[in-house]
């Protein structure tokens, strides 16, 4: 047991230090402030405008719009923060050569990477909690019903981000700057959100009999199999259209968590496999 604690201590210290470093990054804080402003503006400011124009009656349409804006904001700014932090935690240390002093300490590369990855997760979770928390309070004030569905949505959104984070992190471990992994992270997120279309492309391919058509279909099929299906984690439609305290429907939460963890562990293993022999 004490050996396990000893093993975990190093990564934990590195995670906390990575988290503290993240809190001082201007880009990251900028994204967070902007997202909080959008959520705040969409909820409280529209409420003020409504009262000024049509009294204190908030129509269903208004509420749906507000929910739509806030869920989209959490999703977009959340993923930008996720990609930015996952793409940079390792390359920035290699670039600044801070990694020399850390890896020369009694820390295995596996532990170092685990610490950096956990630190990135702490930042992602903190951002999600702040954005989700503000939206949660705003919804509660508007509807006077505890928006438990939003909590489920934030929970699942984290696991969606975990997948994007792990795969971006794996690319970052092969890179000496954060530009390439950021692009890769955006690619993973965009294609991961469109995997249903990839399946559709595959199903429709081969109809013309042309080589290019078949090739595109084949590539779409490979990507559909490899890339995670991030749409599965979205409760957006339900949040927008249902009561705030409805239970989540059409999703199997334990399976989704397991699905995300498999991708996360795979991403981390790839990251370690790349990094274990990397010269710094």
């Amino acid at each position: 047991m004490s050996k396990v604690i000893e093993f975990v201590k190093g990564p934990w210290y590195i995670a906390v230090y990575t988290w503290r470093e993240g809190l001082r990054r201007k880009t990251l804080v900028g994204f967070l402030i902007l997202s909080l402003l959008v959520i705040f503006g969409a909820t409280f400011m529209t409420s003020f405008l409504n009262q000024a124009t049509v009294g204190d009656v908030t129509t269903d349409m208004d509420l749906k719009l507000i929910k739509d804006i806030c869920v989209t904001t959490i999703s977009i700014f959340g993923v930008l923060i996720t990609i930015f932090i996952s793409a940079s935690v390792v390359p920035v240390e290699v670039e600044n050569r801070i990694i020399y002093t850390v890896l020369s300490k009694p820390v295995r590369r596996f532990q170092y990477l685990l610490g950096k990855f956990l630190g990135a997760q702490l930042i992602i979770i903190m951002n999600l909690c702040l954005m989700g928390g503000l939206f949660f309070v705003a919804l509660y004030i508007k509807q006077r019903i505890l928006p438990t569905l939003l909590l489920w949505s934030v929970f699942l959104t984290y696991f969606e981000f975990l997948i994007v984070s792990a795969l971006t992190f794996a690319v970052a471990c092969a890179s000496s700057s954060s530009v390439l992994p950021t692009i890769a992270g955006l690619f993973i997120y965009i294609t991961g959100s469109l995997t249903e279309y990839l399946k559709d492309v595959y199903n429709r391919s081969g109809q013309t009999g042309e080589f290019l058509d078949s090739l595109i279909g084949y590539l779409a099929y490979i990507l559909w199999n490899i890339l995670p299906n991030l749409q599965r984690f979205s409760l957006k439609t339900q949040i927008v259209n249902s009561q705030p305290n409805d239970p989540p429907t059409d999703v199997l939460i334990p399976q989704l968590v397991l699905y995300a963890l498999i991708y996360a562990v795979s991403g981390y293993i790839i990251a370690y496999w790349i990094f274990r022999k990397r010269e710094v």
């Binding site: 210290y13 590195i14 230090y17 470093e21 001082r24 050569r97 002093t101 850390v102 300490k105 009694p106």
Partner: peptide
Amino acid sequence: KKNIGYLPEGAFYPDFLRGEEILHFYGQLY
């Protein structure tokens, strides 16, 4: 590595930490 101390050329350390915080961080790693 517990028995090795290393001073790199140019001294690269996390700028966002205070002097004593750096030492706490590295000490914890030991």
